[in-house]
Amino acid sequence: MHLIGIEEHFLTPEIDRAWRSLGLEQTDPSVALHAGTWHGRLMNLADERLALMDETGLDVQVLSLTTPALHDLGVESVDIAKRTNDTLAAAVARYPQRFQALATLPVSQPEAAALELERCIDELGFKGTMLCGRVGSRHLDDPALMPILAQAESLGVPVLLHPRVPPPAVRQAYYGGISPALDAALATYGLGWHYDAGLQFLRLVLAGTFDRLPRLQVILGHWGEMVLFYIERFAAMERVASLSRPIADYCRANLYVTASGMFLPHYLARAAAVVGHERLLFSTDFPYQYRAGGDARAFLERCGLAGRAKAAFAHGNWQRLTRGAGVS
C-alpha cells in the first residue's frame, strides 16, 4: 500500500547559517537540537534520506523546513525563502516519485509570503505550506498575517501548523528551574512545543479565522497537539466566543490530524472520533522520530484500520486534500 509521510523535515546550510548569525541557538533551544546525526539527515535530500525511507517503509516524503523556519528573520527572509524553495523544487524534480514539498515562507513579510506561496503552488508544484506558530510577538491569528492564510485558502492548499518553542518569559515561568538540559527538553519536545502549536490552532478558531476563511484547511501533528483530547472542555468557551459554529465543528471542517511518528493506535482512534477517518494523515516526523526498522509500515499494519480507511490514512486523504495543488 502506497505510504505518504506528510511531515518530514529538512534544513539547508544557508538557513542554518542565518539562524546562527542571529544567535538563535542562545534564545531558541530547538536550534541546538539540530545537531549530530539529525543535522546530517536534515541536510540530505538524496541517497541517505531515500535509504532511510526504504528502511522504514515510506514511499513518499512531503518535505518541510524544520522549526523555527524563517519566523525570526526579517526582510532578508524573502530571498532566502525563494532560494530554499528553488532548492526544494530541484530535489523533487530529481526524485518525483519519492518527494513532494511544502513551501518555505518569509512570514515576517506577509505580503511577500503570500506571493511566494502562490509561486510555489502555481510554478513549482508544491502541495501547501508549513508555519511554525508565532512570528515575533504575533500569533497566527494576528490580522497582519491574514494575507498568508487568505492566500492558502484561495489556492486551496493546506497549512501545516508546526510546533515552535514558547517565548522566553513563558519558558522561564513554566518550563524553567529544573536543570538547563531538562528545562530545554520540557520547553520543546517534552511539552512546550505541543502546547504552543495546539494553542495557535485554538486561537485561530476563537479569533473567527475559519468564519472569515471557511475553506482554509489546517493540519496539526502529533495527533492534534493536545487539542483533540480537550475538545469537550473547549466547548465551555462558546459562551463567550462570537463564533458561527461550535468549536468541535471547526475540527471536523477545517482540521486534519497527522501522526508525526507517534505510532499509537489508541491516539489514532481518538483523533478519528473527533475529526473523522477522512481527516487522518500519515507522517513519521523525520528525522526526529526515525527508528531503525520498518516501523512506519508496521504501524500501518497494526493501527486498527482496514480497507478503505487504511488506504485513506496511508495516502488517500492526503491526495484528496491536495488534488488541486501543484502536480500529482
Rank of each mutant, 00 (worst) to 15 (best):
H2P: 07
I4M: 05
L11F: 04
P13T: 08
I15C: 04
H39Y: 12
G40D: 13
A51N: 13
L58P: 00
T67V: 14
T67R: 10
P68D: 01
E76N: 03
K82A: 08
N85G: 04
L88M: 13
R94F: 03
Q109M: 14
A114H: 13
L115I: 12
I121W: 07
K127V: 10
G128C: 10
L131H: 10
G133T: 10
R134P: 03
S137R: 07
L140I: 13
D141S: 04
L145M: 12
I148A: 09
L149W: 08
A150D: 14
Q151L: 02
Q151W: 03
P158S: 09
H162K: 11
P163H: 01
P167G: 11
A169D: 15
A169H: 14
A184N: 01
T188S: 00
Y189R: 06
W193T: 00
A197S: 13
L213W: 06
G221P: 12
E238D: 06
R239L: 07
A241Y: 06
I247M: 08
T258N: 11
G261R: 07
P265E: 02
P287I: 01
A292F: 05
D295Q: 12
D295V: 13
A296I: 02
R297C: 05
C303G: 06
G307W: 11
L321D: 08
R323Q: 14
S328Q: 14
